[in-house]
Protein backbone atom coordinates (compact mmCIF):
# COMPACT_ATOMS: atom_id res chain seq x y z
CA UNK A 1 0.00 0.00 0.00
CA UNK A 2 1.31 3.43 -0.86
CA UNK A 3 1.71 5.95 1.92
CA UNK A 4 -0.74 8.84 1.96
CA UNK A 5 0.63 12.02 0.42
CA UNK A 6 -0.08 13.80 3.68
CA UNK A 7 -0.71 12.22 7.04
CA UNK A 8 -1.16 14.57 9.98
CA UNK A 9 -2.04 13.16 13.39
CA UNK A 10 -3.14 15.30 16.31
CA UNK A 11 -1.08 18.32 15.27
CA UNK A 12 -0.69 21.21 17.70
CA UNK A 13 1.25 24.29 16.67
CA UNK A 14 1.71 27.59 18.43
CA UNK A 15 3.58 30.68 17.30
CA UNK A 16 5.03 32.82 20.10
CA UNK A 17 2.88 30.97 22.65
CA UNK A 18 -0.30 31.69 20.71
CA UNK A 19 -2.07 28.52 19.64
CA UNK A 20 -2.48 28.44 15.87
CA UNK A 21 -3.42 24.85 15.14
CA UNK A 22 -5.19 22.59 17.62
CA UNK A 23 -5.57 18.85 17.25
CA UNK A 24 -5.47 18.77 13.48
CA UNK A 25 -5.97 15.43 11.75
CA UNK A 26 -5.59 15.29 8.01
CA UNK A 27 -5.02 12.46 5.60
CA UNK A 28 -4.70 13.20 1.92
CA UNK A 29 -4.52 10.33 -0.54
CA UNK A 30 -2.15 10.53 -3.49
CA UNK A 31 -3.86 12.22 -6.40
CA UNK A 32 -6.35 14.15 -4.30
CA UNK A 33 -7.09 17.82 -4.84
CA UNK A 34 -7.83 19.34 -1.45
CA UNK A 35 -9.00 22.87 -0.87
CA UNK A 36 -8.52 24.36 2.58
CA UNK A 37 -10.67 27.33 3.38
CA UNK A 38 -10.85 29.49 6.45
CA UNK A 39 -10.81 33.11 7.56
CA UNK A 40 -7.69 35.25 7.89
CA UNK A 41 -5.48 34.07 10.72
CA UNK A 42 -7.03 30.60 10.73
CA UNK A 43 -3.61 28.97 10.45
CA UNK A 44 -3.84 27.99 6.80
CA UNK A 45 -0.36 29.19 5.86
CA UNK A 46 1.08 27.77 9.06
CA UNK A 47 -0.38 24.38 8.19
CA UNK A 48 1.43 24.47 4.84
CA UNK A 49 4.66 25.60 6.48
CA UNK A 50 4.37 22.69 8.90
CA UNK A 51 4.13 20.38 5.90
CA UNK A 52 7.33 21.97 4.58
CA UNK A 53 9.12 21.43 7.88
CA UNK A 54 9.54 25.16 8.36
CA UNK A 55 7.35 25.29 11.46
CA UNK A 56 7.94 22.87 14.30
CA UNK A 57 4.84 21.31 15.88
CA UNK A 58 4.39 21.38 19.64
CA UNK A 59 2.84 17.97 19.44
CA UNK A 60 1.64 15.45 16.94
CA UNK A 61 3.11 13.86 13.86
CA UNK A 62 3.38 15.10 10.31
CA UNK A 63 4.25 12.75 7.49
CA UNK A 64 4.66 13.60 3.84
CA UNK A 65 4.75 10.49 1.66
CA UNK A 66 5.38 8.57 4.86
CA UNK A 67 8.39 10.64 5.86
CA UNK A 68 9.02 13.61 8.15
CA UNK A 69 8.77 16.85 6.13
CA UNK A 70 12.53 17.48 6.26
CA UNK A 71 13.07 14.23 4.38
CA UNK A 72 10.40 14.88 1.79
CA UNK A 73 12.08 17.96 0.35
CA UNK A 74 12.28 17.99 -3.40
CA UNK A 75 9.02 16.00 -3.51
CA UNK A 76 7.01 19.03 -2.45
CA UNK A 77 6.62 22.22 -4.43
CA UNK A 78 5.35 25.27 -2.60
CA UNK A 79 3.89 28.55 -3.72
CA UNK A 80 4.01 31.11 -0.90
CA UNK A 81 1.23 33.59 -0.36
CA UNK A 82 3.57 36.50 -0.91
CA UNK A 83 6.98 36.50 -2.62
CA UNK A 84 9.63 35.79 -0.01
CA UNK A 85 12.45 37.59 -1.78
CA UNK A 86 13.74 41.00 -2.75
CA UNK A 87 11.88 42.14 -5.85
CA UNK A 88 14.92 44.14 -6.96
CA UNK A 89 17.17 41.09 -7.10
CA UNK A 90 19.02 41.12 -10.45
CA UNK A 91 17.41 38.05 -11.97
CA UNK A 92 15.21 37.23 -14.96
CA UNK A 93 11.89 35.41 -14.87
CA UNK A 94 13.53 32.49 -16.68
CA UNK A 95 16.28 32.16 -14.06
CA UNK A 96 13.65 32.11 -11.30
CA UNK A 97 11.77 29.28 -13.00
CA UNK A 98 15.02 27.37 -13.59
CA UNK A 99 15.56 27.37 -9.83
CA UNK A 100 12.70 24.90 -9.71
CA UNK A 101 15.11 22.42 -11.31
CA UNK A 102 17.73 22.65 -8.55
CA UNK A 103 18.21 19.54 -6.46
CA UNK A 104 20.38 18.50 -3.59
CA UNK A 105 23.36 16.38 -4.46
CA UNK A 106 23.79 17.84 -7.91
CA UNK A 107 26.68 19.99 -6.92
CA UNK A 108 29.06 21.42 -9.40
CA UNK A 109 26.90 20.33 -12.32
CA UNK A 110 25.27 22.94 -14.53
CA UNK A 111 21.61 22.68 -15.45
CA UNK A 112 21.15 20.09 -18.18
CA UNK A 113 19.41 20.84 -21.49
CA UNK A 114 16.58 18.70 -20.16
CA UNK A 115 16.27 20.95 -17.09
CA UNK A 116 16.11 23.99 -19.33
CA UNK A 117 13.46 22.35 -21.47
CA UNK A 118 11.32 21.58 -18.44
CA UNK A 119 11.69 25.14 -17.18
CA UNK A 120 10.59 26.44 -20.59
CA UNK A 121 7.61 24.13 -20.51
CA UNK A 122 6.58 25.50 -17.12
CA UNK A 123 6.94 29.05 -18.45
CA UNK A 124 4.75 28.17 -21.40
CA UNK A 125 2.13 26.61 -19.13
CA UNK A 126 1.60 29.95 -17.39
CA UNK A 127 1.97 31.83 -20.70
CA UNK A 128 5.07 33.72 -19.62
CA UNK A 129 7.45 32.58 -22.37
CA UNK A 130 7.23 35.97 -24.01
CA UNK A 131 8.39 37.75 -20.84
CA UNK A 132 10.90 35.13 -19.69
CA UNK A 133 13.91 37.32 -20.37
CA UNK A 134 12.68 40.23 -18.31
CA UNK A 135 13.89 41.25 -14.88
CA UNK A 136 11.46 40.32 -12.12
CA UNK A 137 11.35 44.00 -11.14
CA UNK A 138 9.81 44.76 -14.53
CA UNK A 139 6.92 42.32 -14.14
CA UNK A 140 3.46 43.19 -12.94
CA UNK A 141 2.23 41.53 -9.77
CA UNK A 142 0.14 39.08 -11.74
CA UNK A 143 3.00 38.22 -14.09
CA UNK A 144 5.31 37.64 -11.13
CA UNK A 145 2.74 35.37 -9.58
CA UNK A 146 2.60 33.37 -12.81
CA UNK A 147 6.40 33.10 -12.78
CA UNK A 148 6.27 31.75 -9.24
CA UNK A 149 3.60 29.26 -10.23
CA UNK A 150 5.88 28.18 -13.09
CA UNK A 151 8.76 27.78 -10.64
CA UNK A 152 6.60 25.51 -8.49
CA UNK A 153 5.51 23.56 -11.59
CA UNK A 154 9.13 23.21 -12.75
CA UNK A 155 9.94 21.27 -9.58
CA UNK A 156 7.64 18.56 -10.98
CA UNK A 157 7.01 17.41 -7.45
CA UNK A 158 4.28 14.87 -6.71
CA UNK A 159 2.83 17.22 -4.09
CA UNK A 160 1.95 20.82 -4.80
CA UNK A 161 1.12 23.21 -1.94
CA UNK A 162 -0.43 26.47 -3.09
CA UNK A 163 -1.10 29.33 -0.71
CA UNK A 164 -3.69 31.73 -2.15
CA UNK A 165 -2.36 31.28 -5.69
CA UNK A 166 -4.97 33.49 -7.35
CA UNK A 167 -4.98 36.47 -4.99
CA UNK A 168 -2.76 38.52 -7.35
CA UNK A 169 -4.35 37.27 -10.56
CA UNK A 170 -7.23 38.72 -12.52
CA UNK A 171 -10.25 36.39 -12.85
CA UNK A 172 -9.20 35.23 -16.30
CA UNK A 173 -5.71 34.23 -15.22
CA UNK A 174 -7.22 32.69 -12.08
CA UNK A 175 -9.49 30.32 -13.96
CA UNK A 176 -6.66 29.56 -16.37
CA UNK A 177 -4.59 28.45 -13.37
CA UNK A 178 -7.40 26.26 -12.08
CA UNK A 179 -7.67 24.67 -15.52
CA UNK A 180 -3.95 24.00 -15.46
CA UNK A 181 -4.16 22.41 -12.01
CA UNK A 182 -6.96 20.13 -13.17
CA UNK A 183 -4.72 18.93 -15.99
CA UNK A 184 -1.99 17.99 -13.52
CA UNK A 185 -4.46 15.73 -11.79
CA UNK A 186 -4.36 12.95 -10.71
CA UNK A 187 -0.60 12.58 -11.18
CA UNK A 188 0.02 15.40 -8.73
CA UNK A 189 -1.55 15.74 -5.32
CA UNK A 190 -2.60 19.33 -4.76
CA UNK A 191 -3.41 21.24 -1.60
CA UNK A 192 -4.79 24.69 -2.26
CA UNK A 193 -5.35 27.21 0.48
CA UNK A 194 -7.79 30.00 -0.16
CA UNK A 195 -10.45 32.16 1.33
CA UNK A 196 -12.42 32.24 -1.90
CA UNK A 197 -14.83 29.52 -0.88
CA UNK A 198 -17.06 29.75 -3.89
CA UNK A 199 -14.38 29.50 -6.54
CA UNK A 200 -12.26 26.74 -5.14
CA UNK A 201 -15.22 24.56 -4.37
CA UNK A 202 -15.71 24.29 -8.11
CA UNK A 203 -12.30 22.83 -8.84
CA UNK A 204 -11.19 20.85 -5.80
CA UNK A 205 -12.18 17.27 -5.08
CA UNK A 206 -12.46 17.71 -1.33
CA UNK A 207 -12.73 20.64 1.00
CA UNK A 208 -11.52 21.17 4.53
CA UNK A 209 -12.44 24.09 6.76
CA UNK A 210 -9.78 25.44 9.06
CA UNK A 211 -9.96 27.80 11.97
CA UNK A 212 -7.33 26.51 14.38
CA UNK A 213 -9.29 23.24 14.25
CA UNK A 214 -9.77 21.41 11.01
CA UNK A 215 -13.06 20.06 9.74
CA UNK A 216 -12.57 17.50 7.07
CA UNK A 217 -14.57 14.50 6.00
CA UNK A 218 -12.63 13.54 2.92
CA UNK A 219 -15.29 14.85 0.60
CA UNK A 220 -16.36 17.99 -1.14
CA UNK A 221 -19.39 18.39 1.08
CA UNK A 222 -19.38 21.24 3.56
CA UNK A 223 -21.96 21.15 6.31
CA UNK A 224 -23.52 24.19 7.84
CA UNK A 225 -21.88 23.12 11.07
CA UNK A 226 -18.40 23.23 9.50
CA UNK A 227 -19.02 26.72 8.20
CA UNK A 228 -20.45 27.93 11.48
CA UNK A 229 -17.55 26.55 13.39
CA UNK A 230 -15.01 28.01 10.99
CA UNK A 231 -16.43 31.41 10.28
CA UNK A 232 -18.38 32.08 13.49
CA UNK A 233 -20.27 35.36 13.38
CA UNK A 234 -19.77 35.99 9.71
CA UNK A 235 -21.53 32.77 8.83
CA UNK A 236 -24.67 34.40 7.46
CA UNK A 237 -22.68 36.52 5.08
CA UNK A 238 -20.70 33.51 3.88
CA UNK A 239 -23.81 31.37 3.60
CA UNK A 240 -25.59 34.01 1.66
CA UNK A 241 -22.83 34.48 -0.85
CA UNK A 242 -21.50 31.03 -1.43
CA UNK A 243 -23.28 28.26 0.30
CA UNK A 244 -25.71 27.45 -2.46
CA UNK A 245 -22.72 26.51 -4.56
CA UNK A 246 -21.09 24.13 -2.15
CA UNK A 247 -23.83 22.64 -0.06
CA UNK A 248 -24.78 20.24 -2.74
CA UNK A 249 -25.91 16.74 -1.77
CA UNK A 250 -23.15 14.15 -2.00
CA UNK A 251 -25.08 12.10 -4.54
CA UNK A 252 -25.70 15.15 -6.70
CA UNK A 253 -24.19 15.50 -10.13
CA UNK A 254 -20.41 15.88 -10.10
CA UNK A 255 -18.78 18.86 -11.60
Amino acid sequence: MTAPAIDIQDLWVSIDQTPVLEGVHLRVAPGDFLGIIGPNGAGKSILLKTLLGRVRPDRGSVRVFGKPPEHARGRVAYLPQRPEFDLKFPITAREVVQMGRLRAGRWLKPLTPDDRRRAEKALAQVRMTEHAGRQIAELSQGQLQRVLIARALAVEAPLLLLDEPTSALDPGAGSELYGLLEKLQPKVTIVLVSHEIGVISQVVRSVACLNRRLHYHGSKQITREMIEDTYGDTVDFIMHRHIHRILEPPEGPGR
Partner: peptide, 18 residues
Protein backbone atom coordinates in the same frame (compact mmCIF):
# COMPACT_ATOMS: atom_id res chain seq x y z
CA UNK B 1 23.64 28.44 -8.98
CA UNK B 2 23.29 27.10 -5.44
CA UNK B 3 24.59 30.30 -3.86
CA UNK B 4 22.37 32.32 -6.18
CA UNK B 5 19.41 30.24 -5.07
CA UNK B 6 19.98 30.84 -1.36
CA UNK B 7 20.76 34.50 -1.91
CA UNK B 8 17.51 34.91 -3.83
CA UNK B 9 15.05 32.80 -1.86
CA UNK B 10 16.26 30.65 1.00
CA UNK B 11 12.85 29.21 1.70
CA UNK B 12 12.40 27.94 -1.81
CA UNK B 13 15.96 26.60 -1.91
CA UNK B 14 15.24 24.68 1.26
CA UNK B 15 11.97 23.30 -0.12
CA UNK B 16 13.73 21.67 -3.08
CA UNK B 17 16.23 20.14 -0.67
CA UNK B 18 19.31 22.33 -1.04
Amino acid sequence: KELKAIAFDENFAESVGL
